[in-house]
Design a protein around this nucleic acid. Structure first.
Lengths: 235, 235
DNA sequence: CTGACACTTCGTCCCCGGGCGAAATGTCGG
DNA sequence: CCGACATTTCGCCCGGGGACGAAGTGTCAG
């Protein structure tokens, strides 16, 4: 009889994320790549049958997309809005204690450089935005004309990013660094080029990316003053 | 001392939001006010005993704060990061079908004007940002010098908002309008003044606020060109 | 055609967590 | 001190959902 608020009901979506197995799968998919059902089962540490059931529910809730390719089924996040939910949740979630040496190494890799769905994050992502700003290429959520020239020259599809329905160049709060990196359509376009040129390559850990030698040289040529990364290679 | 980062595990926080009863409570708290345990029980449609158990869990998970006042305990969201999680979730969540006339009226109230934790949202929030932009008071995530003068003159603590540890004047995507309203420290400071001056007052529905006659006049004086609201009063 | 592989469906087990009423704790007005 | 009210704690019931192995469907390689 009392007023039950008619609002967006967030519980069903939250429930899909709330299961540890599904959360592990979604977090792995934050890397931006589509992963096969079997890979996701391995990442989450469950049997294929269990993974399949979870993926069916995620699909039903429109948190993931699937693309069938031969006998594989590749799952990916259903869109950047989903990635934003996961990142926002990560920001308020505690970091679990380190259990093994291997986990701590993986953690350091992720802290150094990773993809946040489709754009560069971690220390590398934060540093990239700093360099763009310091060099006068980026100001107030937008490229300067210098920035426009620089990135277009590097092969970034700035035009296309401007036309996208997403926000163009928003700052995205990084959950490990607690400072901003570049997100949105432009962040994604830049990251495409970085991977395409081989300046970064995807690491063995799902979301991690690593700076290559070519990348180090290329970036040093563009931003002569400082190192783009923290300077302490992860071993 | 080496600070080691690990992948955040988002499942526990998501699980707290995943229960429909807790979700209803949290959504009610998005209004920004602290609500007593009994009020939250009524809003969620459960017994006091059940509500108490849920609130204990939310407290344990640091999603809410409590302030004891006499025989009441007032609960509120633990911070704007929590509000951001809830808003982001709302953006990807379906809106439930309208069941009753009363619910549809409430829905229209919320769509017209509500608080998004601590700043103005809904059509009114979106319109406010539009007016600020059109008048040359706001540009590129920051106040212009005109804007600084205008708001300071109205009694908004712009200085204090700049010093806050939050982002100053970010655009926040509105989940009903799908367009941006003003968030962050400045959005909160402006909303404080709007409520303090009685230009808006809190409605009977938890998150809703309504434009008063004084507010209509005051805003018309500042933004002469257009109505701040949609012009179709909610009845 | 056949066997290997990727994934889903089915059947089964089991446990966690939400719901309530009743009683305990705590706080206020007199 | 005493009832009235707000909130929490306790004891109990119940259902949903996640886990697995085995069997079923679909796809590729030779």
């Amino acid at each position: 009889m009392e007023h039950i608020a008619r609002d967006a009901d967030i519980a069903p979506v939250a429930a899909l994320i709330a299961d540890p197995t599904r959360a592990a799968m979604l977090t792995a998919l934050l890397g931006g790549r589509a992963l096969a059902a079997g890979e996701l089962a391995r990442v989450a540490g469950v049997s294929a049958a269990t993974a399949s059931a979870h993926l069916a529910r995620l699909l039903d809730g429109s948190l993931v997309d699937v693309v069938r390719q031969g006998r594989h089924r590749y799952y990916r996040l259903a869109g950047h809005e989903i990635a934003e939910v996961l990142e926002t949740l990560a920001r308020v979630s505690a970091r679990p204690p380190v259990r093994s040496l291997r986990q701590s190494r993986q953690a350091r890799l992720l802290e150094e450089a990773r993809t946040c769905y489709d754009h560069l994050a971690g220390r590398a992502g934060v540093a990239l935005l700093d360099r763009l700003r310091d060099g006068g290429f980026y100001d107030r959520q937008d490229l300067t004309s210098d920035g426009e020239r620089l990135l277009t020259g590097l092969g970034v599809d700035v035009e296309g990013a401007r036309r996208a329905r997403r926000r163009f160049a928003p700052e995205c709060l990084d959950w490990t660094e607690r400072r901003s990196h570049l997100g949105g359509a432009l962040g994604a376009a830049i990251t495409d080029v970085l991977l395409e040129r081989g300046w970064y390559r995807r690491g063995s850990v799902p979301r991690a990316v690593v700076l290559t030698d070519e990348g180090r040289e290329g970036l040093a040529a563009i931003f002569p003053s400082k190192e783009l990364t923290s300077g302490t290679p992860v071993t």
